[in-house]
């Protein structure tokens, strides 16, 4: 089973996780920029974070044979802090980078005016840079948040097929299914979505434009729940091709729209990571 986790915050995870993910079949990930639990106090803090997402973290992932890409944005929570707003002026520089395959996570947290402005402005930036957009949906007042999200997406003029609306559930999936946007589901140990519930959604809505992620971060989460979902699909009678579509081909197709997804040699056997054997002998 080959797995592409389209949403995982590896900065918050250990090398043990990379090791277990690689063993479970995770060969590629996208790490969206988000908040870090502790609020940032300046744009400079974002610069260090973004630099890590296009520097150190891909290197770290590579040690375990996992291909790492990123998305960058001012996230909805911190869009409410004026001290963070100057980061919007720095985004274009990062959107040009090879490893940045979308703008995100953008969208709503508390549905404030400041979030409206940051969301619409960054959708325009996605259009200007010809990039897809990863859209976070709020955890509170979610259904209305999704409705408002879809209205802003429609108004922005971005092609729906270049938008991934994430963290959906049984209630909100219906709102997004017919819009042409891609649908993301974050499989969590207890909260957002579980493997058995996900299987039911796939039975009802099919596998087209459906993406499954672990959204693993610094909270209680599990980077192997993508794999668990694939196994639950097989047990429920889905074919290996169905699983491959949801866990590999769909995320490849969505982020591939950036023209920057680099999966060269990703099917090659993972390099050994004990010691430093990747570089040794390599040059």
């Amino acid at each position: 089973m080959r797995i592409f986790d389209p949403h995982i915050h590896m900065t918050s995870r250990t090398t043990d996780d990379y090791e277990r993910m690689a063993a479970a079949g995770v060969r590629a990930v996208v790490e969206p920029a988000f908040w870090l639990g502790q609020p940032r106090t300046s744009a400079a803090s974002f610069v260090d974070y973004f630099d890590s997402l296009i520097g150190w973290e891909p290197f770290r992932a590579g040690q375990f044979g996992v291909r790492h890409h990123a998305t960058v944005a001012l996230n909805p929570k911190e869009a409410n802090d004026p001290r963070c707003h100057p980061v919007l002026d720095l985004l274009p520089r990062y959107l040009d980078k090879d490893g940045v395959v979308a703008i995100g996570e953008i969208g709503y947290d508390s549905m404030t005016r400041a979030e409206d402005a940051a969301f619409a402005g960054q959708l325009a930036l996605a259009v200007a840079h010809d990039l897809p957009a990863l859209v976070h949906t709020p955890h509170r007042d979610k259904a209305r948040g999704v409705e408002r999200t879809l209205a802003v997406v429609a108004e922005s003029g971005i092609e729906p097929g270049r938008v991934l609306v994430d963290h959906l559930n049984e209630v909100t999936v219906k709102l997004v299914r017919d819009t042409g946007c891609w649908l993301g589901f974050s499989i969590y140990p207890e909260t957002k979505m579980s493997p058995p519930r996900m299987v039911e959604l796939l039975k009802t809505y099919g596998t087209e434009r459906m993406l499954v992620n672990s959204a693993a971060d610094w909270g209680r989460s599990d980077p192997l729940l993508t794999r668990a979902t694939g196994e639950a699909m097989l047990l429920a009678g889905f074919t290996e091709d169905d699983v491959d579509r949801v866990l590999w081909r769909n995320p490849v197709e969505f982020y591939g729209q950036s023209g920057k997804l680099d999966l060269t040699d990703v099917d090659a056997p993972a390099p050994t990571f004990a010691g430093n054997s990747i570089l040794r002998g390599g040059e």
Binding site: G275, N276, L279, R280, E283
Partner: peptide, 8 residues
Amino acid sequence: FTGVPLAA
């Protein structure tokens, strides 16, 4: 220490 070949 980090395994960079000294040929570099």
